[in-house]
């Protein structure tokens, strides 16, 4: 089977999967009991008013028609208007998405760098105390319960020591002061990002460390390392210049997939740090029955992950033709 045909087949597969998710999502939200109006606990809202509002929001149309509207919305890119914001959904998402991307791409890249660095050392000192301690610490950090760690970090670094802001993305004081330069504003965002970044790094560097360690162990048994040793190169240069770069290659796909997954933003991280991102928005939207917003957020997340999977599969197929069966 040719490469082009393989890619085509996979793309059709992705479209089918996307369509299934699309439909499942619609059914899920309509099956759910309650509607955006049923949450309004206010004795002034008479049943007649409520019924009128439901009609105005288009929620009493037959499901088939609602589904057609929904499909039309998805394919025209206009995802409807949020019930509670009264604002087009795309506007809200475009506003929140960059925040999520800043935080999580940075965290993935930094934890990968840290993981590679530590993994290299662990593999180099394999079967020694350094190796065991580093592996156990990495595993322990990886299993820490995220919101618990996040709150303790906030308490310690944000309150006790006071190095970092407690939460949020910017200090309003800085932004409302007229004439603040954009460099200061940029630094302000970095300052706020530090704590969530640190938390995410503690949790995630471990998995990169483990991958790097085992990949490095493989690499160290390769012929060219033995050749390098035979040439009498010093150990540090063998480690840093010969083994590590090649060992880090398998991490590329892992980092790529993590980048894609990072779009879902971790509802937990964003909630605890009050980071105005997409994951937090999705949880809010779901708990207030704001269908258009919740559907759009979820579709975005699922779509990006699907695409990333496709890219990774195609990349593998390109590198290793045996994959295509």
């Amino acid at each position: 089977m040719g490469m082009r045909k393989y890619i085509l087949r996979r793309m059709v597969g992705v479209i089918v999967v996307f369509f299934i998710i699309l439909t499942a999502l619609f059914i899920l939200f309509r099956l759910a009991p309650g509607d955006p109006v049923s949450r309004m606990v206010d004795p002034s809202l008479t049943p007649e008013d409520a019924a009128y509002l439901i009609d105005q929001l288009g929620l009493n149309q037959p499901l088939g028609i609602q589904y057609i509207y929904y499909l039309k919305n998805v394919f025209t890119g206009f995802m409807g208007i949020s019930f509670h914001y009264g604002q087009p959904v795309t506007e809200i998402i475009l506003d929140r998405l960059p925040n999520t991307i800043y935080l999580f791409t940075t965290s993935v890249i930094l934890s990968a760098l840290l993981g590679i660095f530590m993994g290299k050392i662990a593999a180099w000192h394999r079967e020694t105390k350094i190796d065991s301690v580093m592996t156990i610490v990495a595993l322990f950090c990886h299993t820490l319960f995220l919101p618990w760690l996040a709150l303790i970090m906030i308490w310690f670094f944000g309150y006790r020591v006071g190095w970092f802001p407690l939460s949020g993305m910017i200090s309003p004081e800085v932004w409302v002061t007229p004439g603040t330069s954009s460099i200061i504003k940029f630094l302000d965002v970095l300052h706020h990002m530090a704590l969530p970044l640190l938390t995410l790094m503690i949790i995630h560097y471990g998995s990169y460390l483990l991958i790097m360690r085992s990949s490095m162990l493989d690499t160290l048994n390769e012929d060219y390392i033995i050749t390098a040793r035979a040439k009498g190169l010093d150990e540090k240069s063998i480690r840093d210049h010969h083994a590590a770069p090649n060992a880090a290659l398998p991490l590329v796909t892992s980092v790529g997939l993590s980048l894609a997954f990072s779009i879902n933003g971790g509802a937990l991280t964003e909630t605890v740090f009050t980071w105005p991102g997409i994951g937090r928005e999705l949880v809010f939207a779901v708990s207030s029955n704001d269908y258009p917003l919740a559907q759009a957020c979820f579709l975005l997340i699922a779509g990006v992950v699907l695409m990333a999977n496709l890219v990774v599969d195609v990349m593998y197929a390109y590198l290793d033709p045996r994959i295509r069966y």
Binding site: I154, L166, F273, T274
Partner: peptide, 15 residues
């Protein structure tokens, strides 16, 4: 200002 959880808001108040 917005604080997603009351614990953090209380810390902000104390700080």
């Amino acid at each position: 200002k917005i604080y997603g959880t009351s614990d953090v808001a209380i810390l902000a108040l104390k700080k």
